[in-house]
């Protein structure tokens, strides 16, 4: 049974009317959106009478997964991050309302305005010529996000790095990998490399931490929205750039190093326009190595969700078998660092 059913829909409508200061809200055109191995997303229309959203509103209702993933924010926290990003002028979907009361739909959720466009990575990268303008705009957006600093109201719940973002990350990925790092020497080597080469702690900013092709919407070649904020946190600003440029998110267009869409130079130039800081390529390279370890640790965890029997899923099972690809990319990256 879906989240929105004959039982829950009237409750949801009444609650929304109250929250939005409307006379009446009806929920229409409910469809499940694909994607999101972690959260469940529903596209719907809110027909609102009165109040601040009077009229018809295309929105997305994003609900917590049946089982919370250790690394991700809960829905109320994700909503707070979305608000901070939106307030900073980032092209995040406009946050509308959040509900922590699981009595309403059985899970916590929030509602945001729905943006149009395509997210699927393999479709976004499919252009004959590089998308310089899109990469530059994604750089600008990231620069704006990175202007959000610790102390911003509403984000007190985000933990500050204890031993610097790089060391904290390496420690975390070792923890996530668990026993896998005791029998997979590439993992063991990658984790050791991160620990030995960790740069000294830098300033921290609000990082998206899953900023990549596949997590933003494009319509007619233009960026329409940046999605999937559930991993956001305070970190080294170069982390998001390293993650964005990792081979894992180029969707076969390995020659276009910025997310399979254009050159790093495009992304970096856009970033420097708005961030108020220069890109540090050596630090980005460190964080790209960190990205492979992070993705490897996530893939291990996703595989484990299937293997443990808690969530039997072919998609999760196959993600677990992606490790050799991720490790291949890591080794390629580490080799390239020694050539320079």
């Amino acid at each position: 049974m879906g989240l929105i059913n004959d039982g829950s829909q009237p409750r949801l409508e009444a609650w929304l009317a109250e929250q939005l200061g409307a006379r009446r809200v009806s929920v229409e055109d409910v469809t499940r959106l694909s994607g999101g191995a972690i959260s469940e997303n529903l596209a719907l229309t809110l027909a609102v009478q009165g109040g601040r959203l009077d009229g018809r509103n295309a929105v997305v209702l994003r609900a917590a997964p049946p089982m919370e993933v250790s690394a991700s924010l809960n829905k109320a926290q994700e909503f707070a991050v979305l608000r901070a990003a939106f307030a900073a002028g980032v092209a995040a979907p406009e946050p509308i309302v959040a509900c922590e009361d699981t009595g309403l739909l059985g899970r916590a959720f929030y509602v945001m305005r729905r943006a149009e466009g395509v997210a699927a990575g393999f479709r976004v990268v499919k252009t004959d010529t590089p998308q310089h303008g899109l990469a530059r705009e994604l750089g600008r957006q990231l620069g704006k996000l990175h202007c959000v600093r610790p102390g911003t109201p509403g984000l007190d719940f985000l933990p500050r790095p204890e031993h610097g973002p790089a060391r904290d990350a390496a420690r975390l990925y070792r923890e996530w990998a668990g026993a896998a790092a005791e029998r997979d020497p590439v993992l063991s080597y990658g984790l050791r490399w991160l620990e030995v080469n960790a740069p000294p702690a830098s300033e921290v900013v609000l990082c998206h931490r899953d900023y990549r092709t596949g997590n933003y919407l494009v319509k007619g070649g233009q960026l329409t929205a940046i999605l999937d904020w559930e991993f956001a946190g305070w970190s080294d600003p170069m982390e998001d750039l390293g993650w964005f440029c990792a081979r894992s998110w180029r969707f076969g267009r390995f020659d276009r190093e910025a997310g399979g869409i254009a050159d790093r130079a495009d992304l970096y130039a856009g970033y420097e326009e708005t961030a108020g800081r220069r890109v540090d390529p050596a630090r980005v390279a460190y964080w790209e190595a960190s990205a492979y370890l992070r993705w490897a640790a996530i893939a291990i965890q996703q595989g484990r969700r299937h293997i443990s029997g808690t969530e039997p899923s072919l998609e999760l099972a196959l993600t677990g078998r992606m490790l050799p690809e991720i490790e291949h990319d890591l080794l390629l990256h580490l080799d390239s660092l020694e050539e320079t």
Partner: peptide, 10 residues
Amino acid sequence: ITRARLAVSN
């Protein structure tokens, strides 16, 4: 080791 594993997985 990685090439051998990739020869199986992809």
